[in-house]
Amino acid sequence: MATLTKANRKEIKRQDRKLLKKSFKRNWDCYVYMAPYGIIFFAFTVLPVLASIVLSFTYYNILEAPTFIGLDNYRSLLATDDVFITALKNTLMIAVITGPVGYLMSIMFAWFINELSPKVRAVMVTIMYAPSISGGAYAIWKLMFSNDSYGWANSLLLSVGIISEPIQFLTDVNWMIWIAIIITIWMSLGTGFLSNVAGFRTIDRSQYEAGYVEGIRNRWQELWFITLPSMRPQLMFSAVMSITQAFTVGDVTTQLFGIPSTDYAAHTILNHITDYGTTRFEMGYACAIATVLFAMMVACNQIIQRMLRKVGQ
C-alpha cells in the first residue's frame, strides 16, 4: 500500500467516484422508496437533535429570530443555574440506579422465564411487560403513596404500628427520589426485555449439547459461556433501551410531584427542559440542556457497547 504513487492514488479516487456515480444511477429508485419515510424521519428525529445543538448557542424565544450568544447558555448552566446542577444530580442518581438494575432485571428475568414451559412463560411475560405498556398507569402510585392516611402505604404502616403519623411521601425530600426510582424500575421491563426473552428462545440448542460434552456443569456456566455470548446483539439492543429509559425520567416525576417538585428534590433534566421550553419559552437555553442530555446518553451508550463486547471472554 505504501508504495502507491500520488498519481496512482488519484487514479483510484477517480475510479471510485466513477463507481459511486454509476451506483447512484443504477439505484436511483432506492432513494425514491426511501424518501417519504426519510424526509419525515429527518424532519422530526434527526433535525431536532441538530437544531438543538445549533440553537443551544443562541438566545431564542420563538417570537424573535435567534441571536447568537456563543457559549453563554452553557456557562450559565454550569455556573449560575443551581437548579440545573440539582437536576443533573437527580438524573444521574436515577440513571445510575435504574439503568443497571433495570438492565440486569431484563436479562435475568428473561433468563428465568426461559426455564419455564411455553404456556407458563407466556403468562409470565405478559405480567412482567404489563407495567411498561400501561402508559399512564403510574398515576396509581400517587394513590398508593399519597400523603394522607388514605394512601395505601401510609395506611398499612399506620395500622401495623410502624409509624404514628403519615409519611409525606410526595413532598418529603428524603422520599421523593426513591419513589421515582421504584416506579422507574417497575416500568423498566419494556421492549429490551422482550428482545431478551426472544433472544433466549432462539439460541441453538445443539450448542448446549456440545457444551455439556465439553464439561459445562450448571446453569450459571451455561449462561456465561454459551447463552450470553450468543445473544450479544439482543443485549446491545436492550442496553440502548435501558439507557434511554434511565436518562429520560420526567413524566413520572411530573405526575407525582409536579413541576417544580418540593425543593426540586425530584427535578430531572427532562423536567428542566420542559420548564424552560414550555413555560419560560427560553428555547435556546432549553436546547442547551437538551444537548447536554443527548451528549450524556450517546457517551453512556458508547461505553456500555464497548463493555458488552467483553461478555463471555
Binding site: 422530526f44 437533535v49 440553537l55 434511554t244 429520560t248 420542559t274 421550553g277 442530555l293
Partner: peptide, 15 residues
Amino acid sequence: LMFTPAVTGIPNYII
C-alpha cells in the same frame, strides 16, 4: 433509537 419523542420534545415543538 435513543432520541425518543420525550427527549426531542422542545426542538420538535419549534419545528
